[in-house]
Design a protein around this nucleic acid. Sequence first.
RNA 1: GCUCCCGUGGUGAAAUGGAUAUCACGACAGACUUCGAAUCUGUUGUUGGGGGUUCGAAUCCCUCCGGGAGCACCA
Length: 558
Amino acid sequence: MAAKETLIGAIEKALRDLGVEKPVAVLERPAEMAHGDYATNVALSCAKQLGKNPRELAESIVVELQKNKSDFVEKIEIAGPGFINFHLKPEYFVETLKGLDDTYGKGISLRGKTVLVEYTQPNILKPFHIGHLMSNAIGESLSRLIENAGASVKRLNYQGDIGLHIAKALWGIKALTADPRDIDAIGKAYAHGAQTYENDEKAKAEIVELNEKIYKNDPEIHELYEIGKATSLKRFEELYEILGTKFDRYYLESEVWQRGVELVNEGKDKGIFKESDGAIVFSGEEHGLHTRVFITSKGIPVYEAKELGLAERKAKEFTFDTSITITAVEQEQYFEVVFKALSLLRPEFAEKFTHIAHGMMQLSGGKMSSRLGNVITGDSLISDLIEEVKEKMGDRVSASDTPVVSRDVGVAAIKYSVLRQALRKNIVFDKGKSLSFEGDSGPYIQYTTVRAKSVVAKAKSAGIVLSFEKTPEEIGIVEKLLERFPEVAARAATEREPHHVATYAIELASAFNSWYAGQQIVNTEDPLSPYRVALTKATAIVLEKALWLLGIRVPSVM
RNA sequence: GCUCCCGUGGUGAAAUGGAUAUCACGACAGACUUCGAAUCUGUUGUUGGGGGUUCGAAUCCCUCCGGGAGCACCA
């Protein structure tokens, strides 16, 4: 980082000396490492202004830079149409490696801030489906990225325990006389109820009536509801443990809906909401959005109204700078409407509440929907994958390690396949193909980390003491990648895009594996061995840290 | 119909407005008496079409085509 600022200062000074007023130098990381460690395009962008040929201008700039060359710069070159490339000395990278420990990559850009991150949001009495898995993977990673940038993060989960979906499930449980203690039976009952709701007018009326009873906490369904709710919540908790998420606060719809109704009524008095066909709606058209119902003509608050109650509850319980809600893109325009209404009702909230939309997980055959019952549940996917890992492991690890290791590797495969690509992009889910254990995969990075650590352990027992005293003449890609980790973590946090870390981790793992194959690391006869072991250890630390940012655990063996 | 997103090798993806577009999978050919082969080495092949802005476009703007999402009492 310091190198970057120094170079920018030097370039801007050179430009000033050449007659550029208020120069702004942009320093880039060349995509191609052979092009150097830093590059600037100022000769290209200023050429026109100065009426010079870009390459000639670059020559003049380099002459200026050479006068006062920073001591960590090895050479400065001009390339292509007029890029100025900076190659740093090997010592610069070795210095970075020397100070590399568990705190490496921690940022300060969000120091002092508190950020609420709400994610996963499953609904009780409905299956924990693959979309929840996706939201959980993304939410956990974003939480860690923001934490790593210096903020204090509160992980929140908002679980739906009241509303029409509950009525559908309870109706289904009754119709099928399903066991409310059996999570799979509940899932089937929900699908049955939801389908019947769409095809059968009489059943639909019954479900609507049941929904009203739920809001009134009618004793007729109270017991069934409580048992089913407990079954769901218990299973969700087991899944969070498997996935490696610990929430700080769980919100339930049942605790915020009443306040939501009050807020809508308050807004109605202020003219923010209005009545339409017996329902209370927010006219989004006036703000370039669409109109949505907040309270139905039967007086039942829908998701929109509850969300207002939730927002206020968050503000009461936490002092925070930003509240992020993570959901799939299908709710994006819905959140625009809700947050618009919220900002009119509580102007002081306007800038604080934000929504992050991720892509949809789709089945090759079409959209998955728990209402239609054509879902691969998150539950079954996790268990299937863990089984697959077990099979693949055979007797590589001891029987006592197998449960934990297969869990961590299976979860890594799922999480990485979600986090490796830009948030907004959809994933067409093919169970056979998309969850690979080799190449571009979570387990590949895990394996590399485990292997690196194992080599370090071996070096220790061979009596090799890590040292940067004797270094190779040439610095390789591994060293250069390690030096970039802090800025990758920072960028991922700023852009709220975990895939930058995923891409980086796979690159580093791949570079390390190639280097590893090239020579022996642990060799008491080789004077370079202490350096190689130290580099291996540094790689292991950074890989583990990168995986942590993705919410992926590193098993002890695999 | 209106609004918002996404189109990159056979497949899945990456790329701060920058240089010869980068990986992985697949296919083919190789490497374990060598620190962990879930590994490594090599070969193969790409920016949906058309305009525009720019010194420079996968990236920004317009338009067409293709796919996804949303659009009143679901969440």
